[in-house]
Design a protein around this nucleic acid. Structure first.
Lengths: 232, 232
DNA sequence: GTGTGCAGATTGTTGAACAATCCTGCAATG
DNA sequence: CATTGCAGGATTGTTCAACAATCTGCACAC
């Protein structure tokens, strides 16, 4: 073997090293809580009692509080001093704020289409195709998660892992709103056709039109969530 | 007094209520550490020993670890499992990533100029004026902080507190890079003229030109930082 | 009904303790 | 000389128990 090959091995292993580093128990507790919150098992507004939860999960209060802090940072929980942590109750103002951010990030990302590496563009196409497949088998929750994948892939076009991370947080917070209003399937149907429109625009080099389609999508989704949240 | 006045009092107090809520000691410790890191007192790469720091700051290890967690989320510290936390060493790749995000956010925010409330647009003008004043009295660090204010004000044009928060984090992380390379004053001079150009474009309704100026600014700043970091 | 004060519950913070892991230096091996 | 193996010390990961500070709810007085 040549030394070049050997170096290649080393760099590959170095890249996978992160997987080896076990996560802290706080991280795993946070994962479990995040699932429970996003699945709607713990309803928005509900307080998370440190003692009770700590005993249930068999972790100490300190570790649990670290997990709380993680989820507070993700805006899934809110922390009130000397009162405790609560599952966030999404307000209409939050939706407005959130979609203002999405408009900036996702429309900006769409404009990066021509500059983005082919692999990432392909990921966008794949996400749309996945959604279409799920629709054909009437798997509407599947269409929903494919939609999330689509928007994450679009964000990746910008080429910033920091933006990707922020979008991950924004989308998780959005799912909270879906939890309180219960998502309708007609909704996703609507979204999917807009995604298909976007990808056809992009593949034809009509970046400007794709951005307009994204803007329409965001406007419509925002209004749907805002009204749904107002009279829930 | 009328009931309207009374309501006004209440809403004012409600807004200031956050100031009354004392923060946790972890928050205050994090503030202190953040200042030390951004002032360059604790150099990038240096490890933060839990026991020593805890004794110096008179807080328990648990509380200190809470503060570490906060600053790790802000990307000022990095955490390696079973090894401890270290002040982040900014890499060129970080700069690239960071400026890709800034391009999306700040250029997108500039496009919101016409839709933004007048008060926020005025804040942008004020930030430029402040920088001009500081330049006249040769206060170059002052010009630097005015420049940060300018970019925060521009971000606020988008109308999303979540984006504002993200920009706050991005700018703090950027200051880390300045810490390791030592900021030059010629640099800020250059920036300030670009800011003046932007504001004149905006006041004349030439949003498109202002966005181009922002893009030029970001390109130039990124290159300056990347090269300065490579051969530090 | 409004305000006051007390008791119980919950959170904020600390310090100690032990297990798990990492780092360092040194000896042994080839 | 380079590498490996190993012991010992130092540091981190995690838990627990305790106390102070704060909040909440309820009874009571006016």
């Amino acid at each position: 073997m040549t030394s070049v090959e050997s170096d290649d091995w080393l760099s590959t292993l170095a890249r996978e090293r992160a997987d080896l580093d076990r996560s802290t128990t706080a991280d795993r507790v946070a994962d479990k809580l995040r699932d429970s919150v996003l699945a709607g098992d713990i309803k928005p507004g509900r307080q998370l009692n440190e003692k009770a939860l700590g005993e249930a999960l068999r972790v100490s209060r300190n570790t649990l509080r670290e997990a709380f802090r993680l989820l507070t940072h993700e805006r899934l929980l809110v922390h009130e001093y000397s009162k405790g942590v609560f599952v966030r109750v999404p307000e209409v103002a939050d939706i407005r704020d959130l979609y203002a951010a999405r408009r900036i990030i996702e429309c900006g990302a769409v404009r990066c289409w021509d500059r983005a590496p082919e692999a990432i563009r392909q990921a966008v196409r794949d996400a749309v195709a996945l959604g279409v497949g799920q629709r054909e088998r009437d798997d509407w929750p599947g269409v929903g998660t494919a939609n999330v994948k689509f928007h994450q892939a679009v964000t990746a076009l910008a080429g910033s892992s920091r933006l990707d991370e922020e979008m991950r947080r924004l989308l998780a917070e959005l799912r909270l709103a879906f939890v309180v209003m219960g998502d309708s399937r007609m909704f996703y149907e609507d979204y999917l056709t807009l995604n298909e429109e976007m990808i056809s625009h992009l593949d034809a080099g009509r970046v400007e039109e794709a951005e307009q389609a994204m803007l329409r999508y965001l406007d419509r989704a925002e209004e749907h969530l805002a009204t749904g949240l107002r009279d829930r």
